[in-house]
Design a protein around this nucleic acid. Sequence first.
DNA 1: GTCTATAGACCGATAGAC
DNA 2: GTCTATCGGTCTATAGAC
Lengths: 212, 212
Amino acid sequence: MNTKELILEEALKQFSQKGYDGTSMSDIAHPLGISKAALYKHFESKQQIFDEIIAQSEENYKDFFEKLTVHFPEHDEAEINAEDVEYYGKISAEGLSESVLTFVRFFMSDEYSRRVRRMFTISQFQSAELGAMYTRRYIDSMMGYDERIFKQLIKVGAIKKGDPKVLAAMFCGTVIMYMGIWDREPDRAKECEKAIREHVEQFFLMTSNGEK
Amino acid sequence: MNTKELILEEALKQFSQKGYDGTSMSDIAHPLGISKAALYKHFESKQQIFDEIIAQSEENYKDFFEKLTVHFPEHDEAEINAEDVEYYGKISAEGLSESVLTFVRFFMSDEYSRRVRRMFTISQFQSAELGAMYTRRYIDSMMGYDERIFKQLIKVGAIKKGDPKVLAAMFCGTVIMYMGIWDREPDRAKECEKAIREHVEQFFLMTSNGEK
DNA sequence: GTCTATAGACCGATAGAC
DNA sequence: GTCTATCGGTCTATAGAC
């Protein structure tokens, strides 16, 4: 791994712990065993290091969500599709809660994701742009994903009718809330996992069309 | 208003905008028209100013929630009470969403609340204690309040049976999510209000026992 | 309780040797 | 591309006059 990437990695680590203003160029250079002057051979300024971390994470985030949504049917508004009914019709409360938890567990334990999320959280008011990015990344995109799932589930008759966007907000707002607790208080991870599982099951119970 | 309180007020303003590390003693002193040296006649250090803001806000928060919960029936686990049925039985979707929105609007527009919340948000990872305080204040206490309401609503038969804690999480997780968007992107305030209203109505629809 | 002045440390960034 | 040395500035905090 080259020096530039090592710098970005260490800077992210520091920024996510102590924030932009709380991190000095020496804080970044010292753990890497280089002097702070050397940093300026790779980056013009401290701000540029920060910006590059944001830009890099933006690419990673886009790749991640492209892979995640690639399996959605293209014929979004079209008639009911047989394989959709097959796929979405047999989603169970356990299946749904397990796939949600798999996603959440990865998101919470992956060190890179954790650090980027932390850095964004404590930098979200630094500029309007960062605030909008935060919302887009950690709320809108998740909700958009869930919305598409619920749209399918409604279409195939697996859950009751309702605005898929409202349902998605109800579904993932709670999950996001528990992820926040999990981030702030890692000791409560198990409690959060349990609460998310109960939430998904309760949600499934309230929306499912099983008795139809 | 005495100088000490003016300092705390200005410091909160600055800390909530630029964070602890991004705020200097001059940043606090200058808008007040005094020199930074004068600050040290009122506080021992910058850290002490921060701590005092936290402590003061903790008292305000406790007062606020005490007033809010004082009307809850003392006979929590007891038998069904006639006036509870009277009170909780006639809660409507519109009534619930309006009282939620009244609470949210105050919380979002009150400058003091806004600043404390912002300061907490960007300082939540500075120490485990601050993280725990954040959760307690902005999640646990709201959820606890909603949980008690839902417990009553279930008892009097206004909504379907279910774990009141799970319902409270589902209810207020989404509200909290929209408050976050509202804080980061004030332009989206109206959109958030609308979404919260739709959420409360959808939630009421999903849980109500109206057709019983 | 306010001021000016300043100590002493650290900051971001640069110069120049190797 | 790394280093040491340093510039010019800001930081928290203090000293001492008024």
